[in-house]
């Protein structure tokens, strides 16, 4: 390719980079301004004197409806929700994937196909029956109920990840272990699990991102004391108080985004692999 064309190429790629980064820059700079500065300047103007007031307010005292204690409570709710939900759904996915790839039986392919379709069900069809069922078990609007919903809806995805990964482990390895007298659990714990680190990372990161970012289930299946951060953020940003405090909103949005961005920056490789695996390769 000729020199001038390569120049154009790099220019286009850089413009694209600016396009993706701009909202992040705007969020960050807005969150460090005071409201006076926001009214006086514009989207792209740098904050004059950096002020962390908006962050303090978003974390501790901003109103999310009637309550005015910021996002901190919601943040810890999300942490308490995401840890058990990710661990349980990942563990179940690993076991299911192991069975569906290395211990197939009559009907297991059908079970897999049913799980697979579960990946695509619009969750709207589950909301009403789920709300009622959680109510019967006394789990309505509770953290345990929310974790349960995330586990049920996460199984399909985690199973698919592990199953597709384990298909790549040679069957001969399993057979040889079996001839040596190793059983179902021994093969899993001693042979399969130690090889699973990459897919374990992919699944943990994928599930963490999905569940942390979920809004629908949080909105429908939780209330005050158990609402996750996405619901808190939406309440905060869309609370109809007289004046919108955009600096507080942006600080709040960044607080909600921080954990998943941190995971992305630290383990982007696995994140991207999860995306590719999520694109169903049967």
């Amino acid at each position: 390719m000729s020199k001038p064309w390569r120049g154009v190429l790099y220019a286009v790629l850089l413009i694209a980079a600016v396009y993706y980064l701009l909202p992040l820059y705007v969020m960050l700079s807005t969150s460090l301004k005071t409201m006076d500065e926001i009214r006086g300047g514009n989207l792209l103007s740098l904050p004059g004197a950096i002020s962390f007031d908006a962050w303090r307010k978003a974390w501790g005292t901003a109103c999310t409806g009637i309550e005015c204690s910021g996002l901190s409570g919601y943040f810890w709710n999300s942490v308490r929700m995401v840890i058990p939900a990710v661990l349980i759904s990942t563990a179940l996915g690993a076991l299911n994937g192991y069975v569906l790839s290395k211990w197939r039986f009559r009907g297991s392919e059908l079970a897999f196909a049913m799980l697979l379709f579960g990946l695509y069900i619009p969750f709207q069809v589950l909301l009403l029956p789920m709300a009622q069922t959680l109510g019967w078990f006394g789990l309505a609007r509770s953290m345990a109920g929310l974790v349960f919903v995330h586990v049920v809806c996460g199984i399909a995805g985690t199973t698919l990840f592990f199953r597709n990964f384990y298909v790549g482990i040679p069957d001969e390895l399993i057979k040889a272990a079996r001839l040596d007298g190793a059983g179902f659990w021994r093969i899993f714990l001693r042979i399969v699990l130690p090889m699973s680190l990459p897919i374990l990372m992919v699944t943990l990161i994928w599930q963490f991102t999905q569940i942390w970012n979920d809004f629908l289930f949080g909105l429908v299946f939780s209330s005050g004391e158990s609402q996750p951060i996405t619901v808190g953020l939406n309440n905060l940003a869309n609370t109809s108080t007289s004046v919108k405090e955009y600096n507080v909103n942006m600080a709040a949005a960044l607080i909600a985004a921080l954990p998943t961005i941190a995971v992305y920056v630290l383990a982007g490789k696995y994140f991207v692999r999860g995306l590719a695996a999520g694109a169903v390769k049967g």
Binding site: T209, N213, T230, Y264, F271
Partner: peptide, 10 residues
């Protein structure tokens, strides 16, 4: 790719 790590609410 980073926007993909954000929630739609953010």
């Amino acid at each position: 790719l980073y926007p993909l790590a954000l929630s739609f609410i953010v």
